[in-house]
Nucleic acid binder design. Structure first.
Length: 299
DNA sequence: GCAATTAAGTTGC
DNA sequence: GGCAACTTAATTG
């Protein structure tokens, strides 16, 4: 019988107390909103604020409302155009423990070379076709924002001074190499940070993604995953990743509302230590498209 | 690996 | 306070 195993009785108010306790421990250990948690960044298009969202051993940076268009109307058009791409798979099914499951969202994926494969959500080594122009343009925008922030605006002293966050030197080296290559008129194709993108379309508040970690084994270890949101705000919930014995409770540690045009960067070892999900929220009206750009190791 | 199910707590009217 | 709808955690396969 499904889902009918013994469930530990929950005492009245326990959830609330856990929430409060989480809030307290968060204040103590995992999150600070000190002076360097918001980074001002002078971009060509104006001033941007990068927000430190890092947990202990879970580095994350967030930039609000910066991607996919500069107005909500432009971003709506971007989302609608993405929604019309021909490669969406609306009815992905996969097997877990011999049980056939239906993916509660629709997905598609693209890559630079058109032959990169990546494993996700129970599916193995699915080959991704080449980026359509619109996805490529969003990728370029994200890459430009990152190059501008990390190479031109982030002071070296601050890069190690933010609570629970330090820019990996290997990532900085990668960015410098890309900048150098782009400035070199003799270099051939445009060098890039990301070579792969997975798109998720949550058509309403009932579509979701369960707790999971992104497969890091095939990713460049020092390049963050860049998650772009377009459309309705959906919550991004985070909990501790299961390790060894699982007697410890794993309730939600953090919740980041991801809104229209937001860009979330997740650095190593975030995936090693935490799981994330997009929970069901029936009150949410409208759809959300999420693009996750990655640097996949080519085989 | 992650959707589906269940039980129980929370919220809103 | 009572009900319904929703949210959450735990569990299964």
């Amino acid at each position: 019988m499904k889902g009918s195993g013994p469930r530990q009785a929950t005492l009245p108010g326990l959830w609330k107390r856990e929430q409060e306790s989480n809030e307290k421990s968060k204040r103590k250990t995992s999150r600070t909103y000190d002076a360097v948690s918001y980074h001002k960044c002078d971009d060509n298009n104006g001033v941007l604020f990068w927000e430190n969202k890092s947990l202990v051993n879970g580095p994350m940076l967030l930039l609000r409302g910066a991607v996919g268009g500069s107005t909500s109307t432009q971003r709506k058009n971007t989302k609608e155009a993405l929604s019309s791409l021909p490669d969406w798979d609306d009815s992905v099914t996969f097997n877990i423990y011999g049980k056939e499951c239906c993916m509660r969202r629709r997905i598609c994926q693209y890559s630079s070379s058109g032959d990169i494969s990546y494993s996700y959500s129970g599916l193995k080594n699915v080959v991704a076709p080449q980026f359509p122009m619109l996805v490529y343009e969003i990728k370029c925008q994200v890459e430009d924002l990152m190059l501008n922030y990390f190479l031109d605006n982030l002071e070296p002293s601050l890069s190690t001074g933010i609570k629970h966050f330090a820019v990996p030197p290997e990532f900085m080296a990668l960015l410098r190499a890309i900048r150098e290559s782009r400035n070199d008129p003799t270099s051939g194709e445009r060098s890039e940070i990301f070579n792969y993108c997975l798109l998720n379309h949550y058509r309403n508040g009932e579509e979701y993604m369960s707790y999971h970690t992104d497969d890091e084994s095939s990713l460049h270890p020092h390049c963050p995953i860049a998650s772009v949101s377009l459309g309705s705000t959906r919550n991004f919930d985070i909990r501790q990743r299961k390790k060894g014995e699982t007697s410890t409770k794993r309730c939600r540690l953090d919740r980041i509302p991801l809104g229209d045009g937001d860009l979330l960067l997740m650095f190593h070892p975030m995936q090693e230590n935490y799981e994330h999900c997009i929970p069901v929220e029936k009150r949410v009206v409208g759809d959300r498209i999420n693009l996750t750009f990655r640097r996949v190791n080519k085989r």
